[in-house]
Design a protein around this nucleic acid. Structure first.
Length: 282
DNA sequence: ACACTGCCCTGCGAGC
DNA sequence: TGCTCGCAGGGCAGTG
């Protein structure tokens, strides 16, 4: 499940390789819907001949910036994989889209579940995306104070809020469970009930789990790969995600982890280390 | 505005 | 062996 660290890992692995390359052709395979509302002809008209000016990231979105100020917005969703490969390399099993480059290589998008999208976009669309997403958690805009101010306005479970990309951009199910465990906050706690001390440790936990994720080049439980097709190693750093459904012991206290559903997402936590408190007690 | 639900999509593993 | 079923979940539309 690509979240901020995974998308950043892809961005870094693509940046030096793609910058300055031009796009010679666009091809789709069995699923033209990968382009969203665009037809292949429209995508060709917008992209072929363009030079790649750089690769940026906003939340879980990857943006391929082009020399005419337009771009391509890529979202990997659950199983999307963006790789740079030789033209002669055999296509991946779930290959959906190819961008042929001027150096003989191809940028390829594979996606088992067809949730991911590769969207040609104008500058206005890229700006609109930027505007509707919350702050970048690794930017200076994200502070314990700004997090607390956000939480005070909302009554939804803290986990739901952290998953809301309009509130904070880039967190997904894995890093939210990990951050809440490290901050010792029950995922069902009402956001408004989180204390300022808890918000401070939550802020710290979010930043730490994201930086660790990037340092270990992403979490590759299943399909995630970087642009070279390499797995990440951050799955070995995780201590709660996915462990509640097997009742594995908490690394801190040894109690069996629990699994509940919040916002339709499987949620693992330690009921002993993360006790539920309904109201603020400061 | 906010909170919440259902939908999309397919492979995989468990259970029978 | 082969079937069914539940599960994985990000973003968005729809509802209250």
């Amino acid at each position: 499940m690509p979240e901020l660290p995974e998308v950043e890992t892809v961005r870094r692995s693509l940046e030096s390789e793609l910058t300055g390359r031009s796009i010679r052709a666009i091809r789709v395979t069995d699923f033209p819907g990968v382009l969203g509302p665009s037809t292949v002809e429209e995508a060709e008209a917008r992209l072929v001949g363009r030079v790649i000016a750089g690769i940026s990231r906003r939340g879980k979105y990857l943006i391929i910036d082009l020399d005419d100020e337009t771009g391509v917005i890529v979202h990997l969703r659950m199983t999307g994989v963006l790789t740079l490969e030789s033209r002669t390399a055999p296509p991946a099993r779930f290959h959906r889209l190819t961008a042929e480059l001027d150096d003989g290589r191809e940028l390829r998008f594979a996606d088992q579940r067809k949730f991911g999208r590769v969207l040609p976009a104008g500058r206005d669309e890229i700006n609109a995306l930027d505007a509707r997403l919350g702050p970048e958690p690794l930017s200076r805009d994200f502070t314990p104070e700004s997090l607390l101010a956000l939480l005070r306005k909302r009554t939804a479970p803290i986990k739901s809020l952290l998953l809301d990309q309009h509130a904070i951009a880039g967190l997904g199910n894995i890093y939210v469970d990990e951050a809440l465990f490290r901050a010792r906050i029950h995922p069902r706690t009402s956001a408004a009930a989180v204390t300022s001390a808890e918000a401070e440790s939550l802020h710290d936990a979010i930043v730490r789990v994201l930086l660790a994720g990037i340092e270990h080049r992403g979490t590759s439980f299943d399909s995630f790969r970087d642009a070279y097709g390499m797995r990440g190693e951050n799955q070995h750093q995780l201590v709660v995600y996915g462990r509640g459904n097997r009742g594995l012991p908490c690394v801190d206290c040894g109690a069996p982890l629990e699994r509940i559903i919040i916002s339709g997402r499987g949620t693992s936590f330690c009921a002993a280390c993360q006790p539920l408190r309904q109201t603020r007690e400061e």
